[in-house]
Every structure is written in structure tokens, then in C-alpha cells.
Design a protein around this nucleic acid. Sequence first.
DNA 1: CTGGATCCGTTTAGATACTG
DNA 2: CAGTATCTAAACGGATCCAG
Lengths: 115, 115
Amino acid sequence: MKTQENVKPVDIRPFAYAISLIDGKWKMHILFWLWKQDTLRYSELKRSLGNVTHKMLSSQLKELEADGLVLRREYPQVPPKVEYSLTEKGKSMMPILSELCRWGNQNVPDGWEQN
Amino acid sequence: MKTQENVKPVDIRPFAYAISLIDGKWKMHILFWLWKQDTLRYSELKRSLGNVTHKMLSSQLKELEADGLVLRREYPQVPPKVEYSLTEKGKSMMPILSELCRWGNQNVPDGWEQN
DNA sequence: CTGGATCCGTTTAGATACTG
DNA sequence: CAGTATCTAAACGGATCCAG
């Protein structure tokens, strides 16, 4: 009884956990803007993200909040005002985003743009 | 004429470029295993990833290869043998994966597992 | 302004069969 | 062994309407 040849045992669980929190079409972008802008209202976030739809933004924010990465602060007034920001857990992910930015700056091709 | 209040101008292009290369359900996991194992045959990769389907794995590998992150080496023999590994560009992304692992190790809840 | 709910077309991804 | 092709169910995502 032997394990597969040439394939070492590796624990992917911690890595997979991190990935599971940030996949989803807009999550990384949301985290990015909250990182750069600190606190944003719902409508500001929507404008910043560009072509995200209402449905997507609200659902992604809800998941990020449920995962403890984003803080939702609601001001009881009319019209409503809601501000989003990073939690401590969310902030602790910023080194990851920072690495992504660093890599991007060194590798983004001239003239590249999101299709 | 003024820009939005409280919203500073930020260039998200490099970040978005990095994201665009690694989103896709299995790409990060593929990069992870090639990182840890150096070189893997198609079937070894498939076993390592667990429940990935044939179709997904081949399509994701193809995209990673097209983006210059993964190298495909084919040995002309019967039965065929194909090995995958990271390119230099692929390796240059490893600090990002490294950060994800570090964060995951510090934050993965006890008993958490991929649904 | 900040959402939730619904309808509905598009995309995705799994299962299966087939090839060199 | 390492793929490709096709068919189909399910998930996703956009548009729109409604509400506090």
C-alpha cells in the first residue's frame, strides 16, 4: 500500500478556505474599493464598480458581511443611508490584495482592459 | 464640475488584470498544486484536485496555458504522457498564493471543509 | 436611497460517449 | 493516457417592479 508516486501530501484546506471567501464575481473588487476608500455608501460603491448590477452588488455584499469581511452600518433616517467598510478580518486580507496589485503593476500589458 | 465627494481616484487596472487571470473556478487550485508539486501529469493533477471534471480541468488548463501561466509539455509516445508545470510568469504569482496560505492558516475555522 | 422579489434569457458545468 | 464533442440541467446574472 503506497501513496501516488511523485505526489507529496499537501494540506490545501487553509488555502481553499481563503479562496472560498473571495471567489464570486465581484467580491475582490468590492474589497479593493473598500480598502482604497475606507468607507463607502452603497451608491458610491456601485458607481465605483462601474457595470455591476443592483442584484449582484447587494448579494455579494450580503455574503461578504455574512463571512465577516465587511461591516454594514445603517443610519436610521429617511432617505436611508448605509455605509460599508472592512472589518478587522477583512483588513487582515489586505496583504493579499496588496500582492495582487504589486503583481498587476509589474505585469499588466499596455492597453489591456477588462472586456 | 467636481468628482464624487469622498471618493478618491484609484487605478484598478493592474489589480483587475491580476484577478482576470486567476478567476475561474479551478485556476487557483491548479496553480496551487503545481506550486507544491512542481510538475504533474494530467491524471495526477486530476486526482489531486478531487472532484473536478474532465471537461473543467482541460478547459481551465488551456486558459492558463494561453495566459502564459502554465507550461504544457507533451511526450510523443503511446500511451500519451503530458506534464504540466508553472512558467516563470506563473511562478511570479506564487507570493500571492503564499499570502493566501498564510491568511488561511491563521483564519480557517476548526472543522471547516469545502461544501 | 437602499434594498428585496420575480421573471427570464444566457452561461456554465456535469455526464456521457468518442478519438488518437 | 489525455483529451474533444455533444447534450442537458442547473446556476448565474440582467432587467424590472415593489417597498421601507
